[in-house]
Design a protein around this nucleic acid. Structure first.
Lengths: 348, 348
DNA sequence: CACCTGTGGGAAAGCGCTGCCTGAGTTGTA
DNA sequence: TACAACTCAGGCAGCGCTTTCCCACAGGTG
């Protein structure tokens, strides 16, 4: 078709240069026609450029644009485990919000490994994302952690914005969830419907969310006459299988009067339900169970799970809005709400 | 510290140029020290460069590298809905495999909207990803679809590789799942344990997976003496709520002898279980239910769900491996496996 | 008719980086 | 001692794009 046998590698995407040549205009005019700068372009020229672009299947090279503009349209998102419904809901929120801000999301999974998390942050930093969102990051200030902090600060020093989801020791923008308040309210609600003796399944990773939920629950019980003995607190993995195992341990040991087991996350609670059933007991009747988060499956397990609703998708949206400078989003902790269902029937 | 008041905007990430200056070497040497090219660099120089880089918190600009190298390390992944466990498992597989190939994943969500899907493909194309993976894409050859095909072909024309997960009319690399075979095997297994009259809950979107599963199931029943009347096939949304609604419709109409309802996906089956329970019936006992996919929650619903196992994470891994040229990955459809659980107790 | 102003296309610089090419310095060989 | 053969640091072009800056030209004014 066109003349000039300059570069006819077939596998090279068309460049703006190609488009300009095809349309018979300069590079500058082609650029202005396609992205629509402040400068006006003659309609006829613009038309020609757009047609040429379509003919050549032109697609602007965002790397090149990023270089010259000095800014990208990327949001980097780190989650612990994308197949965990907690994180996939948060991710859905981030992605939805990113789409409405015309940003593109790059995602990485840490597998709850601090070292890998650090490597990923390093790698993602190279993308010069506008925003970096970390969900379910490790909390305690050990060495790997402070290296992470340093890396994040370096990223911010280079003009990036970091947002953490969930309380954290790092001194960075954070979307706070009212874990403690929700746990207090849950404890009160449960004593209110007649429960007195409680057990707890919580994580062993020292996540601040775990701690806040446990302490909040304990405080709520103290204020409302419930009892939680230290022996009845089981520390286990913060996963479905962790919940299953923890519950099994509790059952093997004998419930010894525990009427209700509070699992610090729904996913653990779901595992606990299965463990109860596998032990030949009936959850809700023989032991009540409550969770935290209100992931979608809480409606579909049997009995439906009492929990504390955390608006997970909203969390993700809010994280990005906060990063983008919406100060309202920083205002205060995201509210949580107790949802009583049949896994905790009213007692006597 | 350093002299030359050239550019001291505080919010500018350090460039390789800065590092080279700080280390007192040339740009070329700095580049070679940091990325380790084929050329050797004097140990002392390299040391100096690495120290300077650390001191300045240098992180290579991947956009710049992409430009000059003419290739990126990005994988673009499109899914219909990331909070659906089917897609989040597939995504987990893609991300895991990407990590082991030192690639980074960019993710977008189509929300099952063909138009949005097209826009996203267009936008992602600008990233020049090495690979583009589409999971749960729309299938039928309508107009938006052919525009999608054109866009994907343009992307491949520019040197990219497209992989589709699940059968599709587009003539592109595809990870095939043996949906039909699994459905046949399921039908046989169920007639084998005494079921005769069946109902089906399937999607209304014309996805080829839906069709293959339905047709496979039908064929399996025909071969083994089961009965499926057209009236007992309900078309509904391919989601949890779709399953719930479909089952409710079936129950409202009266089961009229249907002993087992096959839902074309687990997520629909889970909704169906809840609908059965909400109607005051006992799933498994009053109506049996079977699903397809074996998502994690199938173990935790009551009764545990009979299903056809699809190795979802493996699907994602395989998609990327296929894109990266692993010809074994293209070999044949991914095998599926019947898993009988208590939602379909043996009859009579 | 001389001059000014506004409009809008084109040339060119340069974003951060890699990889070829050059050339200085070192070692080996006759 | 002369010269070939290496080795390896540095110079520089250029990846695809945006954005000044420049300039030609059209139209307006006194």
């Amino acid at each position: 078709m066109t003349d000039s046998g300059i570069d006819t590698r077939p596998n090279r995407p068309a460049t703006l240069h190609d488009v300009a040549r095809e349309a018979g205009v300069s590079l500058a005019t082609a650029s202005r026609s396609i992205n629509g700068s402040t400068r006006k372009v003659n309609d006829e020229f613009r038309q020609r450029v757009l047609e040429a672009a379509a003919r050549l299947d032109y697609s602007p090279n965002v790397s090149a644009q990023a270089m010259v503009r000095g800014t990208t349209t990327t949001v980097a998102l780190l989650v612990a485990d994308i197949s965990d419904p907690y994180f996939s809901s948060v991710a859905a929120g981030v992605i939805a919000e990113a789409e409405s801000a015309a940003l593109i999301v790059t995602m990485a999974v840490t597998d709850r490994d601090a070292e890998r998390e650090l490597d990923l942050v390093r790698a993602l930093r190279g993308q010069r994302p506008r925003v970096m969102i970390l969900a379910g990051s490790r909390p305690t200030a050990d060495t790997a952690e402070s290296a992470l902090g340093e890396e994040l600060r370096a990223y911010e020093g280079g003009g990036g914005v970091v947002v953490l989801i969930g309380r954290n020791e790092l001194d960075l923008r954070t979307v706070l969830v009212d874990n403690a308040g929700g746990a207090v309210a849950l404890a009160r609600a449960l004593t209110g419907i007649g429960y007195r003796r409680f057990g707890v399944l919580t994580g062993s990773e020292g996540l601040l969310a775990e701690i806040d939920r446990l302490e909040g629950f304990r405080a709520g019980l103290e204020a409302s006459g419930g009892e939680l003995r230290d022996d009845d607190i089981v520390r286990t993995a913060f996963t479905r299988d962790g919940g299953y195992d923890g519950m099994r341990r509790l059952l093997a040991r004998g419930l010894a009067g525990v009427e209700l087991v509070f699992a610090a996350s729904d996913i653990m609670a779901v595992g606990a339900l299965s463990a109860i059933r596998d032990a030949g007991l009936t959850p809700g009747t023989d032991v009540a169970v409550a969770g935290f988060d209100d992931i979608p499956t809480t409606r579909d397990v049997t009995p439906p799970l009492t929990t504390v609703r955390v608006p997970l998708e909203a969390l993700g949206r809010r994280a990005l809005r906060l990063a983008l400078g919406d100060t309202d989003a920083a205002a205060r902790a995201v509210a949580t709400e107790v949802v009583l269902r049949e896994s905790t029937p009213a007692r006597g």
